[in-house]
């Protein structure tokens, strides 16, 4: 049963349908969150206030989906009393949607900062840093959606590894902002506000790591939270 997920069908076909339903709802929520992230980032970088408004308004939809999936999972737990892989499946997805919802909130924060950042005029370097961090987390999110679909542990591990690059980029960007603020105290205000957006992107990376950890737990039953990357690879390779 290691590193693969190939359960046979349930005797109760209805149960299979219910689980399949939850999965497609989670994918739908993930796709919506991805749209939010993409648009939130575009709004911020292009100073597109109209788009920013849309993102802010759409956050309700993300929240509504979370509630809906939450209810579906609760009802499966109450009615079907899932065990083994089924239990891990429901638990992992219930946690996944919490992180999706948070990613939605971070995307909304990007949109909210649009006006502020626009007024302060974003510099070419700031644009590049945010663009590059943004592209990285969008790629992580895209791959996470694939992992939910395929439940491929190797790919989940890849996504977890990519977060390191996001963190490095974040660190470098902060250093850049700090040294610029030292040189030109006038930039302190705009630097701080840009740093919040960078922080939002960095947090999104963390949420995506969480999700991939839940998915690894789903597939092989190992709780891999709070473990170093190196140890993690070792754990997944043993047996």
């Amino acid at each position: 049963m290691e590193n693969e997920y190939q359960p046979t069908q349930h005797i109760s076909q209805q149960f299979d349908v219910e689980l399949e339903n939850i999965k497609s709802q989670v994918l739908k929520m993930g796709a919506l969150v991805k749209k939010q992230l993409r648009d939130g980032l575009t709004a911020l970088l292009d100073g597109d206030e109209k788009l920013a408004k849309k993102v802010i308004k759409r956050d309700n939809k993300v929240n509504a989906l979370e509630v809906k999936i939450d209810e579906a999972c609760t009802s499966i737990i109450a009615i079907r009393q899932p065990a083994a892989t089924d239990l891990r499946f429901v638990l992992s997805l219930i946690k996944t949607i919490t992180d999706f919802e948070r990613i939605g909130d971070e995307a909304e924060k990007l949109a909210v900062s649009t006006r502020n950042v626009k007024e302060k005029h974003i510099s070419e370097q700031e644009y590049q840093y945010l663009r590059s961090m943004g592209d990285m987390v969008i790629e992580m999110l895209t791959q996470t959606l694939e992992v939910i679909e395929t439940l491929n542990v190797d790919q989940a591990l890849e996504v977890i590894k990519q977060d390191q690059a996001v963190n490095d980029e974040y660190e470098e960007f902060l250093n850049f902002l700090v040294s610029r603020m030292k040189d030109k105290p006038k930039t302190i205000k705009s630097g701080l506000s840009i740093s919040w957006s960078a922080r939002a992107l960095e947090r999104i990376g963390d949420h995506l790591v969480n999700i991939n950890e839940y998915l690894i737990y789903l597939v092989n039953g190992k709780d891999v939270r709070h473990i170093d990357l190196e140890d993690l690879e070792e754990i997944l390779n043993e047996e």
């Binding site: 049963m1 359960p7 046979t8 069908q9 349930h10 005797i11 109760s12 149960f15 899932p82 065990a83 083994a84 892989t85 089924d86 239990l87 891990r88 039953g221």
Partner: peptide
């Protein structure tokens, strides 16, 4: 056994699958 059985037959039985 109920969260992470090792054998496929156990998994199938406790989760109500064909096996």
């Amino acid at each position: 056994i109920f969260t992470n059985p090792r054998h496929e037959l156990t998994e199938n039985y406790i989760s109500g699958r064909f096996g």
